[in-house]
Design a protein around this nucleic acid. Sequence first.
RNA 1: GGGCGCAUAGCUCAGUUGGUUAGAGCACCGCCCUUACAAGGCGGGUGUCGGGGGUUCGAGUCCCUCUGCGCCCACCA
Length: 793
Amino acid sequence: TDTIARFQRMRGKMVFYPIGWDDNGLATERRVQNVTGVRCDPSLPFDPEFVAPYNGDVPKEHRAIPISRPNFVSLCHDVIHDDEEVFEQLVRRLGISIDWSLLYTTIGERSQRTSQLAFLHNLARGEAYQQDAPTLYDIDERTAVAQAEMEDREVPGAYHKIAFHRSDASGDLLIDTTRPELLASCVAMVAHPDDPRYQPLFGTTVRTPLFEVEVPVLAHHLADPEKGTGIAMICTFGDTTDVTWWRELNLPSRALIGFDGRMATETPPWITTPGGQTAYEHVAGLAPKQAQRKIVELLTESGEMLGEPRAITHPVKFYERGTRPLEIVATRQWYIRNGGRDDDLRNALLERGKELIWHPPYMFNRYQNWVGGLNGDWLISRQRFFGVPIPLWYRLDSDGNPLHDEILTPDESKLPIDPSTSCPDGFTEDGRGKPGGFIGDPDVMDTWATSSLTPHIAGGWVDDPELFARVFPMDMRPQAHDIIRTWLFGSIVRSHHEHGCLPWRHAAISGWILDPDRKKMSKSKGNVVTPINLLEEFGTDAVRYWAASGRPGVDTAFDAGQMKIGRKLGTKLLNASKFVLGFGAPPTGAVPTAPIDRAMLARLADVVDESTRALDEFDYARALERTEAFFWWFCDDYVELVKGRAYGTQGDDAAHSARAALRQALDTVLRLFAPFLPFVSDEVWSWWHDASVHAAAWPARSELATTGDISLLAPVSDVIAAVRRAKTEAKLSQRAAVSELVVNAPTVALRAIEQCRTDLAEAGGIETFTLSEAPTLETFVRLAPSTDPAASH
RNA sequence: GGGCGCAUAGCUCAGUUGGUUAGAGCACCGCCCUUACAAGGCGGGUGUCGGGGGUUCGAGUCCCUCUGCGCCCACCA
């Protein structure tokens, strides 16, 4: 991103380059819990005297000191403040040319205002709505999570074959289940409508084992005849298919797992037989795993489980940061429409994705895949503490119960607000929680609900309309491929709703940095490499060189070898510059006249074109590679060839041509390298310019002699290489003299060599240089009679 | 199960719309203290371009197919 920003700045653009720390949300809460040993209990009162007991290294047994929400939030602010200073130091050291005056944080005041305002707009237009529905819920964090935050993990499980009793006593109905602990939540049985094995049973009922509840046998096309016994028990709720069946078959809700992740302690009313009630007492209050063991034990005793559990591994949904499987709990949550339940919106958002210019283009497939696969709207409410509050209150009825349909919204001018400490218009604090009064929404918004507005936050949507008009929609969103479904998609959703357009024209999608074995870095694997040591060992330019050599979108393995090359390149730039500048400035008006000088500059002009084109297409890696290849050729062949002439061996005019060409080339090359190696290029630039190279204009073909004949260069390089090879093979120094060089070559090559004959002769130490025509280029090198080895020193 | 990407020298990777004999760096070996650079320079070889088939005058490049690896997604009975 920085390379692109520096390039565009050199082209004369005003680059709007903000940065933000995404510090709100669960990641911060967890870090605070781990570092300070506290946990938030919103029922506690604020304690102004509270001091965190630890600062890092909290003993495990002390990790749950309960503190009030205001105390907790204050601790979060302290911790992120320290972390963000470290981040800033690192980013500055990387030479990222961010405009630090544009720094924002997602928990900051402007972000909160932006996030709440956008939400209220969504609410007013009907794009935000609340719903009481089964929701995927993390029982450890005690919060709902969105589809984008879930992942499947392969975990061990087991099929349990369980017998349900037919009401007509004609025998048992067998099912396979991995979750026998949900047996008490069973509301129906389901098989495929075309399955002849179960067709006779549709419309009848069976009795659940242990709990003795009568449940109907139903047909639904989602039931898979191939899975298990072909008939499944529907529980509220074991998985998302259960939710579908529950909704589409109009089944009752018999949820038993609560927000604490445990089975309800009281025996539910639908279990009516004494035997069933006794069975439930065994599992009341247990966590799912304990309950499963108990149920298996009971079923085994009663003979209703057939055989042993059969171990399998199967995919189970987890919160991406969680450790236990998600449960499905019925809760009231806020959603923003994202096309997951509305084909028109889904198609409109797919169209937005097509409008966006993706770099690399195939990354669009991930977007399409994600949008096409959405199975619900975007759940944005979180039962957490350190986040942007949902800016709403609800009226309370005469019994003090919230009326969720009677929403009280704040005036936009008062944003941001915290509904737990401020009150709605027309009310006073006295009315909080009282019958006929009001209550604030206790939840905060998902961090992506705020991050999806980063163009608005950075661009001053809420407080600087003039700036916003100039920068929105933006040119480019830089980000990695793993957050296309969250950051990128969320941003498009919000911009589509708010403005009816894309938030930016281009998406520059980067890959990941992998560990040296090409594995994703992760804390749990312990293979994380933090950049600070690399910066110390190799220098910033070298680390940037490595980073820029990874092509857009491609994952790049951490590679110290690549950084060594980057460091070598920087050193070479210093040395070559020292040499070129050592000749002093050529006289005013001196221009490159020698054919080889002009040819070199013509090649450089091509490199300028190619690099410019590549950077215009966000292909920084190609731009760097072409510049680098030119530069090494320039040092190895061109400089060696013209060195003598530049010193003046062929007279002043010839020297001035070489010196002017060397300077022009260096001047251009430094600017081509500036976006990649900002430190070394600026250092060298400062040796002969007043302003920074980063304020210089990006080079253009028109600055360089473009009439040079590039075809001169290859034959000349071939001859140089042949002479060097001969000396090396003879184990002689490159200074050794060549008594005779014969070059046979086709006319075109011959003419090229002829034009730099003197330079070649000087560079190679050639005494007699004979050219003659031949179909292909051949060289014969006769070395001078060997001298006494001792004397060669 | 669906989608996407990758597969080129021992390693990391270029190879832009098909076009001479497939390249670079690293690593390895040898030589050279050379006046910009010894934290350097010069030189050296190694390829069934994953397998098979096709289109074409011509394929690393385009098409089909298979294999392997990786990532993203998906409905947990």
